[in-house]
Design a protein around this nucleic acid. Structure first.
Lengths: 343, 343
DNA sequence: ACGCGGGAGGTAAGCGTTTCCTGACGCCGG
DNA sequence: CCGGCGTCAGGAAACGCTTACCTCCCGCGT
């Protein structure tokens, strides 16, 4: 009675299932891939048994062409090895899984041309949504990108940007407010001089954090001595801080790194210069990545709910009815040992 | 002369391009989506101009159904926020980009049922390859998974496992050798007692590292006092170490965490217990994730070329001709401050 | 001048699904 | 007993693309 199951070179198709169950393609489709129409119980069982037997899984590509819409969400990040993006991606993936979607990921390496190329490639998948988490600058290279994004929207795709002024829907965080609170709180701890290690001018996240911190810190009586430019990486933080230290940094100075990753680089540079983080040079960051908990002294920072942010971004990308958050997510300052009170 | 371009609700199709260029579908296809056949220069130009004008990008889903093969590689990881998987994913993404492929990612959260479900979902995309980086155990839950994987292979997909004995092609690292060298080197530094914080029995990576470390350490005269079981996370390391410390751990003991992430948790537990990492309790890890450089004391570990590993995995997944590495990648012991010499 | 070969464009048959539409069937009311 | 209607399976036409095959035309050899 048992048949030889040919070790076929290709997966079972709906056609196979229908034949096996002795029903039409249409019926099999209705049973297996959600339809509003009813199918008699006896047919349903036959089809399900056949599908099970053959290990059938719908071919999403074919489904996508037939339906005209895919079950894909694309995510563009600068660097997936960076914990910031890792946590973000984690939230996106969780949301996608809940919604029965698949996420496709691409890495820009913070290169605008690459980003353009990647958007073009992703566009080929006709994803339902595209989440842009790679903090872009609006340099001259962005024109090609804009064209791609426009084309994507025109094709019915939903764009979501992290940050307040990117294309499409925005999911953002109150960088200005958080940084202001951080600046104020550190000034209250007795710090009077600060240096900021930021990313390039024009990068909104960086600009907002610089502006907020400056406002909060000077508002409470502190003085920003300098804003130096690096990037969003650990090495940028390290190198920038090293240069700073070589030029001489007065003990008791606070160095604010635009993100935790940068701040961690700064801490290492401080130590490599033979100084102590906290008592000699204080360091603060932004994001509250997991590592900040485990380094010593603990890194003073502003907690950004990254996972949650990713989750929201996913929903912004796929929910038909969506309303921008009435206000950006509020953030919470976390003071740890890297900024001990100055008496 | 200029036409009104309707802000169409859907992206331009090849059909549109062909019409715009005044050629047949076949010609347009040949020009735009690689074909061995030649097309006259004049036609080629017309088609390219039309494609450019309409912002055409091939619909990969349609292409996939027509060609019977997709340009997708699927990656399954336990937790993308974990730097181990982050770095791995980074390498996979780089390789995919070079090969003109798109990577789809899914997160198992170390849950076998979830993993099965995800493989099934990914299978729907008919990816060229599936990279399994979620360290699986071969528990009773794995039977559903095996069925899915078999079906995937039967459909012509290539499976790649990280580690020596998973299904499909294997890309692995000399965990045993690396751990042996680590154990030996630490014994040589004067350590005589060690406790190992491992993951569950049956997880190959964990078992190999335990076995290797034990061999190296005892071979050089040390004694493994205990092997305790946690998991692969920072919190597992922290909790396990805390329990250990509450039961009392003799100063000078070395605690080997099965991975850097675990070891970092252990370091935090040690500190929270009021002890000093290094002088009181020495800690060693495995993997050499980026963070290990930046914590103090630096974490003694074994360097695993994770990015490279991901890159290799990608190639194992898509290259037709592929040979297993004659031997697993050799690893390098890196001694840092968390294991100071014992005099 | 004719036949033939080869190069290149077009036609159309798929690929695996969905979905509109047709039609068979059974049930009810008249 | 018959017509009308509701229900539900099935046939077949899409979806956007690739590609085997056909056809036409040009140039060459004899």
């Amino acid at each position: 009675m048992s048949e030889i199951i040919a070790p076929s070179r290709s997966a079972a198709t709906l056609h196979d299932v229908a034949r096996e169950a002795g029903v039409s393609l249409a019926t099999a489709s209705r049973v297996l891939n959600g339809s509003t129409r009813k199918v008699a119980e006896s047919y349903r069982e036959r089809v399900e048994a056949a599908a099970e037997k053959l290990g059938y899984t719908a071919n999403l590509s074919a489904q996508a062409t037939a339906r005209g819409t895919s079950a894909i969400v694309a995510l563009l990040v600068a660097d997936i090895a960076d914990p910031y993006f890792g946590q973000l991606a984690s939230g996106v993936a969780r949301g996608a899984d809940e919604a029965g979607l698949v996420v496709t990921i691409a890495i820009t390496e913070r290169d605008a041309q690459r980003e353009t190329r990647l958007v073009r490639a992703l566009r080929g998948q006709r994803p339902r949504g595209l989440i842009l988490a790679a903090s872009r600058t609006d340099g001259p290279d962005s024109v090609g990108l804009d064209a791609e994004l426009t084309a994507f929207s025109a094709g019915g795709g939903q764009i979501v940007s992290l940050g307040p002024d990117g294309p499409g829907r925005a999911v953002s965080v109150d960088n200005v407010g958080g940084a202001t609170a951080l600046g104020a709180q550190l000034a209250a701890l007795g710090y009077t001089r600060a240096v900021i290690v930021a990313a390039g001018v024009g990068i909104r996240t960086s600009d907002d954090r610089v502006a907020g911190f400056t406002a909060g810190f000077t508002g409470a009586g502190g003085e920003i001595q300098e804003v130096v430019r690096g990037g969003f990486t650990r090495d940028a933080g390290y190198d920038t801080a090293r240069a700073l230290l070589e030029r001489g940094l007065e003990p008791g100075t606070l160095v604010f790194g635009i993100s935790d990753v940068v701040a961690i680089g700064i801490m290492s540079a401080v130590r490599d210069a033979g100084l102590r983080v906290g008592s000699d040079i204080a360091v603060a960051g932004f994001d509250d990545i997991a590592t900040g908990r485990d380094i010593r002294p603990g890194l003073t920072t502003v907690r950004v709910p990254l996972e949650d942010l990713g989750y929201r971004a996913l929903h912004a990308a796929v929910d038909a009815e969506w309303a921008p958050d009435p206000q950006p997510l509020p953030l919470e300052v976390i003071v740890r040992g890297s900024t001990p009170p100055r008496s």
